[in-house]
Computed example of a mutant assay.
Amino acid sequence: MKRTVHPIEAESYRILRRAADTAALPPHTRDVIERIIHTTADPGWLTDLVTDEAALAAGRAALAAGAPLVTDVSMVAAGVTTYPATCLVAAPETAALARDTGLTRSAAGIRLAAEENPDGAVWVIGNAPTALVELIDLATTGAIRPALVIGLPVGYVGAAESKAALRETALPHLSNRSARGGAAVAAAAVNALLYGDPLA
């Protein structure tokens, strides 16, 4: 997706490329890592992210073809400004499912979204480790077949562990090793797949 790049953004990218050597990375990997560094002003993401070029290419192709984009929380959806996203965390039926099952609201929203998006969606978890665990469980049973899972939840309880569990699956995915993550980072990964290199 081509867009007008503001001079401040272009200069930010030139600065980050001096701070983090990304030149040898494959193109989609570079796009994602640079967009996350740009979003956070933290070059440490270069060594924290765990990427797979083929998985990112599949996610980009899916989005280019209009695949569903499903997020765990509304803040992730809000950060993706040029592509419609589904987020059921605030839906009344999500609250009811969470109450009846003991799931967190985020996990319940993922379970309900799976019923509507079983094949080929791009799934983005940017907040709740429980949502990522639920997504992994759904994929393990064959309830969903994602085009890409962006697993970047944040927190001291379960975040790093849920991302490690994602990396143990055969799902096409993006994750990171540490407990950090969050909605802005997850949205940045999606935007990278949508926009590509702003200096190209």
Rank of each mutant, 00 (worst) to 15 (best):
G59T: 04
A57S: 15
E161H: 07
A77V: 03
L46N: 15
P118W: 01
S12M: 13
A159Q: 06
D119W: 10
N127L: 00
D31M: 09
L56H: 00
R111N: 11
L112I: 11
A143C: 09
A57M: 12
H6N: 02
G151Y: 05
E115S: 11
L69H: 01
E168P: 06
A114I: 01
T101A: 06
P146F: 05
N127S: 15
R105F: 01
W123R: 04
N117Q: 13
A65Y: 12
A113T: 07
S162P: 08
L148R: 02
A128S: 05
L148W: 10
A65T: 09
H38A: 15
P92H: 09
A188S: 14
P172E: 07
A62D: 13
P129T: 00
T169S: 08
T22G: 08
Y156W: 15
A170F: 11
A188V: 01
T140F: 06
S162R: 00
G66V: 06
A20G: 02
R17E: 07
L171I: 01
T4M: 14
A10W: 09
A96M: 13
A170T: 14
A131I: 06
T86M: 14
G181F: 04
A131E: 05
P198C: 10
D31I: 01
G66H: 04
V5M: 15
T140C: 14
D48G: 03
G126Q: 01
A98S: 13
A57C: 01
A85L: 14
G196M: 07
D100Q: 13
N127T: 07
A24Y: 06
R3K: 08
A20W: 03
P118T: 02
S175Y: 00
P84H: 10
T169V: 10
S178Y: 08
L49I: 08
S12I: 15
A78R: 12
S178F: 03
P26A: 15
V80W: 00
A183Q: 01
D31H: 14
A128R: 01
R18Y: 12
A67M: 03
A128C: 12
L46V: 10
A78C: 06
V5L: 07
R18H: 14
L49S: 02
T40N: 05
H38E: 09
V149R: 03
A113H: 06
L56D: 00
A58L: 02
D119M: 11
K2W: 12
V149Q: 09
P68R: 02
L132F: 04
A57P: 08
A183S: 11
L63G: 07
D52F: 04
L97Q: 08
G126C: 05
E9P: 09
N191S: 08
A20V: 04
E11L: 11
L166P: 00
A164F: 07
G66D: 13
P7H: 12
I125D: 10
A165F: 13
A62P: 03
